[in-house]
Amino acid sequence: MMQIVVDFNDTYVPITLNQELTLMTFMAPQKIGTDQELLIKIEPQGNPFLPNVFNLDFGPPDIETVVARARGRRV
């Protein structure tokens, strides 16, 4: 099982950030000593029974392709 820990005292400077504050890229240090560009995308869940619930997509910059494939859509 993967465990995600959010530490608001350990933050990264955005490379890109849209006006709505729902899409951001940043450089994340890797264990091997390099940096990797990552993307965060926040969007409403879209379920009327879950108001004010959001999806948080987190991953490589081509996340749109990754998310579409995971949801069974053609890219």
Rank of each mutant, 00 (worst) to 15 (best):
M1T: 05
M1D: 07
M2V: 08
M2Y: 03
M2A: 08
M2S: 10
Q3T: 12
Q3F: 03
I4D: 01
I4A: 09
V5H: 14
V5Q: 14
V5T: 15
V5F: 13
V6Q: 13
V6M: 13
D7L: 06
D7H: 09
F8L: 13
N9M: 08
N9S: 12
N9V: 01
N9G: 13
D10K: 15
T11V: 15
P14I: 05
I15E: 11
I15T: 10
I15P: 00
T16S: 11
L17T: 02
L17N: 07
L17Y: 04
N18W: 11
E20H: 12
E20K: 14
T22V: 10
T22F: 10
T22D: 11
L23T: 09
L23Q: 09
M24F: 02
M24V: 13
M24A: 13
M24R: 10
T25I: 08
T25L: 06
F26W: 08
F26I: 00
F26D: 01
F26N: 00
M27V: 00
A28N: 10
P29K: 08
Q30M: 15
Q30S: 14
Q30C: 12
Q30Y: 04
Q30H: 13
K31A: 15
K31I: 12
I32M: 11
I32R: 13
G33S: 10
T34Q: 14
D35S: 13
Q36R: 15
Q36D: 14
Q36E: 15
E37W: 03
E37D: 03
L38E: 02
I40G: 01
K41W: 11
I42W: 02
E43D: 04
E43A: 07
E43N: 02
Q45Y: 13
Q45M: 14
N47P: 00
N47T: 03
F49G: 02
F49L: 11
L50R: 08
P51F: 09
P51T: 09
P51V: 09
N52V: 02
N52D: 15
N52P: 00
L56F: 07
L56H: 04
D57H: 15
D57M: 05
D57W: 15
F58R: 01
G59L: 04
P60V: 08
P60S: 13
P61A: 05
P61K: 06
D62T: 03
D62E: 12
D62I: 01
D62Y: 11
I63H: 06
E64I: 04
E64V: 07
E64Q: 10
E64A: 13
T65E: 14
T65K: 14
V66K: 07
V66F: 06
V67M: 09
V67P: 02
V67Q: 08
A68W: 03
A68E: 14
A68C: 14
R69M: 08
A70Y: 09
A70C: 06
A70D: 05
R71T: 03
R71A: 06
R71H: 12
R71F: 07
R71Q: 13
R73W: 03
R73S: 02
R73M: 08
R73V: 00
V75K: 05
V75P: 06
V75A: 13
V75D: 13
